[in-house]
Computed example of a mutant assay.
Amino acid sequence: MKKHIVTLTAIAVLSVGAATTASASSSYTVQSGDTLWGISQDKNVSVESLKGWNNLSSDLILPSQELEIDGQAATPKTDSSTYTVKSGDTLFEIASAHGISLDSLTSWNGISGYMIYPGDTLTVKGGTAVAEKAPAKTASAPAKSTAPAPTPASAPAEKAPTQASTQAGKTMTVSATAYTAYCAGCSGTTATGIDLRANPNQKVIAVDPSVIPLGSKVWVEGYGEAIAGDTGGAIKGNKIDVFIPTQGEALNWGRKNITIKVLN
């Protein structure tokens, strides 16, 4: 009789352990250097399934991010309208993780340039454009009034369109070359903070920001939909540089005139 009780107890313990393992296996915490492709291979699922289950609009993932890997829950764990910047964050990564454009993120938070600091609180949902934050005054500069000039109640100021919105839907012909993350002198990290060596499947193009705003989604003939996430000293005017993982494929691309379309 005692043996029978022990056996039942062992089965119960094993059942609890199996249930715990099954529960734990339904999600995965992203580690530094992980890619969606690598996780998909390890978990025997497709990249598209991972993106669908986790509402991802791109292949970009961040360390410590929780991913569902069996389709049990495909909705975000939080619905916060703000985000607190952590060490190592970039504006592009934050915008991509929250499904918004880089232009919206900078506009909502009055950010000029791409400098952010740990502890900053950013609006990441439902924001409205605000004036750019003024740089800190030097000790020798006289104090100036920052009060806005009054406007008549009957004539509210009209919000000027952002550069990205004026470019959306624009089609143009450009001269396109290709580059890799391992060229001489390359760090592998783009001007907006995308680690191309850790995300070799990310489609990124280098652009002249005065022609195509950084953070825009762009359809590129012969390449597909990409993020305008990098710049280059030789990329001026109607020129782009497409990121291709391997040097051989980049050389095969060469230089060509192609059609692109700014999507947002």
Rank of each mutant, 00 (worst) to 15 (best):
residue 185 G to C: 09
residue 246 T to I: 05
residue 200 P to S: 02
residue 104 S to L: 06
residue 220 V to S: 04
residue 257 N to C: 03
residue 132 E to L: 14
residue 122 L to M: 09
residue 78 T to H: 10
residue 145 S to F: 05
residue 12 A to F: 15
residue 202 Q to W: 11
residue 127 G to W: 02
residue 211 V to W: 03
residue 13 V to R: 05
residue 40 S to R: 00
residue 28 Y to Q: 02
residue 221 E to N: 08
residue 66 E to T: 15
residue 122 L to Y: 08
residue 26 S to H: 08
residue 25 S to E: 10
residue 35 T to F: 03
residue 256 K to W: 03
residue 66 E to G: 04
residue 243 F to K: 02
residue 169 G to Q: 06
residue 152 P to K: 14
residue 49 S to I: 01
residue 207 V to K: 12
residue 206 A to C: 07
residue 232 G to Q: 02
residue 118 P to Q: 12
residue 154 S to W: 14
residue 77 K to A: 15
residue 182 Y to S: 15
residue 171 T to K: 15
residue 158 E to A: 14
residue 257 N to P: 04
residue 253 W to R: 07
residue 229 G to R: 02
residue 38 G to P: 00
residue 234 A to C: 00
residue 200 P to T: 07
residue 109 N to M: 06
residue 119 G to K: 01
residue 264 N to R: 09
residue 52 G to P: 00
residue 200 P to M: 07
residue 92 F to C: 05
residue 185 G to A: 10
residue 126 G to S: 07
residue 215 G to N: 11
residue 125 K to T: 04
residue 88 G to Q: 04
residue 209 P to Y: 07
residue 203 K to Q: 12
residue 224 G to F: 11
residue 101 S to D: 13
residue 204 V to M: 13
residue 176 A to C: 14
residue 53 W to Y: 07
residue 83 Y to A: 05
residue 26 S to D: 06
residue 221 E to V: 03
residue 134 A to R: 12
residue 212 I to D: 00
residue 178 A to V: 11
residue 177 T to M: 10
residue 95 A to P: 01
residue 136 A to Y: 13
residue 207 V to Q: 13
residue 94 I to T: 00
residue 165 S to G: 01
residue 249 E to K: 12
residue 262 V to E: 02
residue 81 S to H: 02
residue 243 F to H: 03
residue 19 A to K: 10
residue 217 K to S: 14
residue 9 T to P: 03
residue 100 I to S: 02
residue 61 I to S: 00
residue 143 A to L: 13
residue 113 G to A: 00
residue 225 E to Q: 14
